[in-house]
Design a protein around this nucleic acid. Structure first.
Length: 425
RNA sequence: GGAAAGGUGGCAGAGUGGCUGAAUGCGGCGGUCUCGAAAACCGUUUCCCGAAAUUUUCGGGACGGGGGUUCGAAUCCCCCCCUUUCCGCCA
């Protein structure tokens, strides 16, 4: 959620920022409602002040036996008018809140302005030693390879649940588990995150806090009977750990990492990219979440990207980093890096991670604040999160990059102690 | 799922219609004392919104959430949420 005061004081900045993000211009509307709102507040508060004054005198009057009928009648009218004003005020505030909840975050000034994904900027690439984009044998894609090796069974996954629900078998299941454990251990031991294991069904307030609803409600699963949403990412429960809290400034930056399955409806995205692991309704992800002071959040974003990169470098999987342009940034993000891993069979890069700074956008929605040690002032924290990483796309790159001409898959060395085997054949 | 009790400041816990943003205790912070510490004593200790002035003054609001009664609600009534205990069910 954008800061109402900021909109009031910087209407042109907001207008331009929204345009860059391909979003509707709500500035005039917001300013108009806000002005009306404040004038109502002034009127209502004058009356309340009067009511309070009179109220303190009433016990005295009663004690001295004065007749209060006249005053009570007058105060009744005042009370009715207050109720009326408060009612109108509530309506305006609802309208304001509604508008703001549907309005995306503005991009940071370091984000390149662009219309769509084509204008994203490649920040850097990392390729393992002796890596080549050309292969001297025909690389099987992960679907065919997974089937041949008996480690992925998309048909039976579809039978059990429907398309987009992958079923891992045998060494495929073990490899998946190994990846998750390896990533968690790395972030705990090398990068000093604390581990959490969050609930995967969350309530409406939590979804609102991180920005998935109301705007993106269509993309979310929803269990009507209990009013709960299966999470699209562990970002939701982990960020909401501190909803409605004021954190001591000295505890920041707080860094959490957690594994969770993720559920996405992916409404309307069938066809393109929907084969195998490329677009699924359920996948596994290790997620990093940070709560930081505003002045540190951009350094924290860079270090979070590095934390994700460390995983890929340890696994020796080729990747590149994209800095997303304003038009491709997600609803809540102020700045975002995507990490894409190389798929030899697809002959293209696949998004395996997304690391974003939300600045105070989520914090304002979820009411997550901190108290400065020096000034004792409370301010909104900055929240960040990043995949570290999602296993599905990673698995595609891993299987494809590590396959041999004979159709086996070598297990990356760092995973051996987690898998207990070195080759899948 | 059934029954009962209960939700008040960081915590414990008073208040059951009117100077109660809220007693008291603990904790926290600052000070006195001390070479230092403890003890003791003194002081201090929530958050949101608005107006004016520019980091201060004034006003309004908040006792789980929402609505109602009333001149006036932490206090009375209704709905919802949550917690605890007992019973049932259960990995």
């Amino acid at each position: 959620m954008l800061d109402l005061k900021f909109i009031r004081e910087n209407p042109e900045v907001v207008r331009k920022g929204l345009r860059n993000k391909n979003a509707a211009d709500i500035v005039d509307n917001v300013l108009k409602i806000d002005e009306e709102r404040r004038s109502l507040i002034v009127k209502a508060e004058e009356l309340k002040s009067k009511r309070n004054q009179v109220s303190t005198q009433i016990p005295q009057l009663k004690k001295t036996g004065k007749d209060t009928t006249e005053i009570f009648a007058e105060m009744k009218r005042v009370g009715d008018e207050i109720a009326l004003l408060d009612n109108n005020l509530r309506k305006l505030e609802e309208e304001l809140e509604d508008t703001l909840l549907y309005t995306p975050n503005l991009a940071h000034e370091s984000v390149p302005v662009g219309k769509s994904a084509e204008e994203n900027v490649e920040a850097r690439q990392w390729l393992p030693e002796s890596f080549s984009f050309e292969n001297d044998f025909k690389v099987l894609d992960h679907i065919e390879l997974g089937k041949k090796l008996g480690i992925l069974d998309f048909e039976r996954g579809t039978k059990i649940s429907g398309p987009g629900f992958p079923l891992y078998m045998g060494k495929g299941a073990t490899l998946e588990r190994a990846l998750i454990n390896f990533m968690l251990d790395s972030h705990l031991n090398e990068h000093a995150y604390s581990e959490v294991f969050p609930p995967v069904l969350v309530n409406k307030e939590s979804m609102k806090g991180t920005g998935q609803i109301p705007k993106m409600e269509e993309d979310m699963y929803f269990i009507e009977k209990d009013g709960l949403y299966p999470i699209p990412t562990a970002e939701v429960p982990i960020t909401n750990i501190h909803r409605n809290e004021i954190l001591p400034g000295k505890k920041l930056t707080i860094k959490y990492v957690g594994y969770s399955p993720c559920f996405r409806r992916e409404a309307g995205s069938y066809g393109k990219e929907s084969k195998g692991f490329l677009r699924v309704h359920q996948f596994n992800k290790v997620e990093m979440v940070k709560f930081s002071k505003p002045e540190n959040s951009y350094d924290e974003l860079e270090s979070m990207v590095k934390d994700a990169e460390d995983i890929l470098q340890a696994l020796k999987i080729p990747y590149r980093i994209l800095l997303l342009c304003t038009g491709d940034l997600s609803f809540s993000a102020a700045k975002c890096y995507d990490i894409e891993t190389w798929s030899p069979a697809e002959n293209r890069w696949l998004e395996a991670s997304s690391c974003s700074n939300f600045e105070s956008f989520q914090a304002r929605r979820a009411n997550i604040r901190f108290k400065r040690e020096e000034s004792k002032k409370t301010e909104f924290v900055h929240t960040l999160n990043g995949s570290g990483l999602a296993t599905s796309r990673l698995m595609v790159s891993l299987l494809e990059n590590y396959q041999t001409p004979e159709g086996k898959v070598i297990v990356p060395k760092v995973l051996h102690k987690y898998t207990g085997f070195e080759v899948i054949s």
